Structures are given as C-alpha cells and as structure tokens.
Amino acid sequence: MDFSFMSVVWLGTPLWLWASFFALVIAILSFDLGILHKENKEINVAESVKLSAFYIALGLSFGGFVWWYLGAESGLAYMTGFVVEKTLALDNVFVIALIFSFFAVPRIYQHRVLFWGILGVIVLRAIMIGVGATLVAEFSWVLYIFAAFLVFTGIKMLVMKEAEPNVSDNALVRFMRSRFNVTEEHHGERFFVKLVNPKTGKMTWFITPLFMALVMVEVADVIFAVDSVPAIFAITTDPFIVYTSNIFAILGLRALYFALAAMIHRFRYLKPALAVVLIFIGSKIFVADLLGLEKFPAALSLGVTFAIIASGVVWSLVKTKEEQLPA
C-alpha cells in the first residue's frame, strides 16, 4: 500500500504528523474510558493528582518532541501555549463546579460529563482554530485585532469586579427547559431517558439534568475559547502548534478538575496574574513592531509568562493561607 500521501504538507505540517497526533489522542481517551474508568466511580483527590501529573507529563513530553522535530522556536511556542491554556483552564474549573452544583450532578457521574465534554472540545477547538488560522493567513492584520482584544480583556479583568455566573438565570437553561422534555431528577449515568409524558400519557424521550450539565460545560468552553484561542495565535500562527498545545492542555482538565474543585478558593488571587499574562501576550506583538523585530523572542515570552503565572500562584496560596489563620 502506498503511504506517500502521508508526506503531503497540510496546514504547514506533514500529514503523518497530524495523523500521529490524532492517533495518540484517541489512544489516550480509549485508555482513559476503556481501562481507567470502565465503570463509573468517584475520583478521589489522590487519583486526580496522579492523573493530572500523568497528563501534564504527557503534554510536556509532546512539547519535547515538537522541540526536537520542529525546532527550538516551535518547541518554545508550544510550551508557552500549553502553560497559558493550562492556567486559563483554572477559570473553567470554577465554572464547571458551579454547573455541577446547580444541576446536583453526583460526583460518581461527573467524570462521564467531563469525558464527553472533552470530545466536544476537541471538535469545537478544531473549528475555531481552523477559522482563526484561515483569517490570519488571508488577513494578517487580524492578528493585531486578536492582540488588541487580549490587552482589552486583560485590563477589563484587572479593573472590573467579575460577578459570579448565575446558572439558574442562564438563557440556554431556560430555553432547554421550555422547548424540551426535561426530567427533574437524574437517571443514573443516562443523558436521555424514555418516560411517560404526563401531558399526553405516551412514552416520550426526555433529557436529563446530566445532559443539560454537559451542554452547559460545552458552552462554557466556547466562551473561554474566546480568550484562549486569540492568546495562542498571539504566541504562534502555526496551526499545528496552536491546536496541539490547546488539546494537550485540555486533555488533563478532567483529572485536574477533581483535584482543584475542592481547593479552588486557594487560587482566588490568580485572576490578576492571568490578566497580566493576557496583556503581555497581546502587547508583545506591538512591542515587536516598535522594536523592529520580526517576532518577539520565544524564550523571553515563555520565561515572562511562566514567571507571571508562578508569582500569581504563590501569591494566591500565601494570601489564602493567611486568611485561614486564626486572628
């Protein structure tokens, strides 16, 4: 069989490299669902930490491969995107916790929602990144719009107090409840269930709160992608680096959730650091132009990004610990 077509370059990267990446992702998800979580069970904090470490190591190892095969600049861009996306995911964890709490999703079924949510994320991010890559390739000035948007978003995060999302007042929740048959209680791990409709007396398909939680998790990711996708394009315009760094950062979100959900309050002061990171990533495109540089140095970009995030994490942990100490 002739596999010469695998050497064809697609979106700037050989097709075999894309195929290898997707094969690896499928293998990881199959291992996760088919072996680690073949049966529904609660994921405790210890298991969550171990799984998180595994996914982080996997993401960093892939970054090492990118560095070795595509060069240091691509490797640094991947690492920067991975770190930024992983940190932005902390906000996502907070919103997911609110969604699970509102729909009273039993802890034993939360992994199921997150797993299928990740599958949706892989497809949705591919679409958003594909559109972004096309726009940047056709209209280079779009990159400056992305950069300005990041600076604006970062400043807004610093100066404005963000209100806690109100899931009960969400338009999508109201729409689903008004247009579809929705059960009030959970039916195990099922997203859909056939029950007698009290209005017609006939057997009818109902959606369960578990499915509504899944829809809300997907929508939350799309909203967060509005920040993260422009951020990674401001780091690199290589579609392969953009997509792989995003997906490897998100793959471990399920495991990370169970470790962070119980201690998300300890990262209360991390948001200002995230805001500064967005401002830095957006502004470095304009700084590079002012200095007459073709690109902002990748090593400096990674170093500054990591330093800001690390400072935010340390400051947050110290401040929240002080608040918990008795007066």
Score class of each variant (00 low, 15 high):
Met216Gln: 11
Glu162Lys: 03
Val8Leu: 13
Asp289Tyr: 03
Val113Phe: 15
Arg112Cys: 02
Ser245Val: 13
Leu24Gln: 15
Ser7Pro: 14
Arg174Met: 15
Ser311Asp: 10
Arg177Trp: 04
Ser20Phe: 09
Gly81Leu: 05
Ala231Ser: 07
Phe233Val: 03
Thr13Val: 08
Val215Cys: 14
Pro198Phe: 00
Glu73Ile: 01
Thr134Arg: 15
Ile235Val: 13
Ser52Met: 14
Arg179Gln: 05
Val217Ala: 12
Pro165Phe: 05
Trp205Glu: 11
Thr236Arg: 12
Phe62Ala: 10
Ile281Met: 00
Val226Asn: 14
Glu164Cys: 01
Val8Asp: 13
Ile108Ala: 00
Ala255Val: 09
Met216Pro: 11
Ile235Arg: 08
Val222Gly: 11
His111Leu: 07
Leu293Ala: 05
Ile155Pro: 10
Glu138Tyr: 14
Leu293Phe: 05
Ile241Glu: 07
Gly292Arg: 06
Ser283Phe: 03
Leu119Cys: 14
Val219Glu: 05
Glu162His: 04
Leu214Ser: 13
Asn40Phe: 13
Leu293Arg: 05
Ser61Trp: 15
Phe152Leu: 10
Leu51Ala: 02
Pro297Gln: 01
Val217His: 00
Ile108Gly: 01
Glu189Tyr: 02
Tyr269Thr: 10
Lys199Ser: 01
Ala259Trp: 01
Phe115Ser: 03
Ala171Gln: 02
Ala171Leu: 04
Trp68Ser: 10
Ser61Gln: 15
Lys38Phe: 08
Val277Met: 08
Ile28His: 09
Glu189Arg: 06
Val83Ser: 04
Trp18Phe: 05
Ser48Cys: 03
Gly303His: 07
Met160Ser: 09
Pro326Ser: 12
Ala275Trp: 00
Ala259Pro: 03
Gly132Trp: 06
Val215Asp: 15
Asp32Val: 06
Trp10Phe: 12
Glu294Gly: 12
Phe103Glu: 02
Pro272Asp: 10
Leu114Glu: 01
Phe211Ala: 05
Ile308Thr: 11
Leu88Thr: 03
Phe21Ser: 02
Ile235Phe: 04
Ala104Trp: 06
Glu185Gly: 07
Ala261Trp: 08
Val226Gln: 06
Met6Ala: 09
Phe103Asn: 10
Glu85Pro: 00
Leu76Gln: 00
Ile99Tyr: 10
Val229Ala: 02
Leu291Met: 15
Ser316Glu: 12
Phe206Ala: 03
Ala259Asn: 00
Lys321Trp: 15
Phe31Trp: 15
Pro326Glu: 14
Phe94Ala: 14
Leu325His: 12
Leu24Glu: 14
Ala104Asn: 12
Asp289Cys: 07
Gly188Asn: 01
Pro198Ile: 08
Glu294Phe: 14
Leu90Gln: 09
Ile118Glu: 08
Ala89Thr: 03
Trp141Ser: 12
Lys319Gly: 06
Val217Trp: 07
Ala19Phe: 12
Asp227Phe: 08
Gly71Ile: 11
Phe82His: 09
Ile99His: 04
Phe280Glu: 03
Glu322Gln: 14
Asn181Trp: 10
Asn246Arg: 07
Pro165Gly: 04
Leu278Ile: 00
Ser52Val: 02
Ala23Pro: 04
Phe102Glu: 15
His187Cys: 02
Trp141Thr: 04
Ser178His: 11
Ala147Phe: 06
Leu172Arg: 01
Val226Tyr: 02
Val276Gln: 07
Glu138Pro: 03
Val229Thr: 08
Pro209Thr: 08
Trp10Lys: 08
Gly303Met: 09
Lys202Glu: 08
Thr153Cys: 07
Leu290Pro: 12
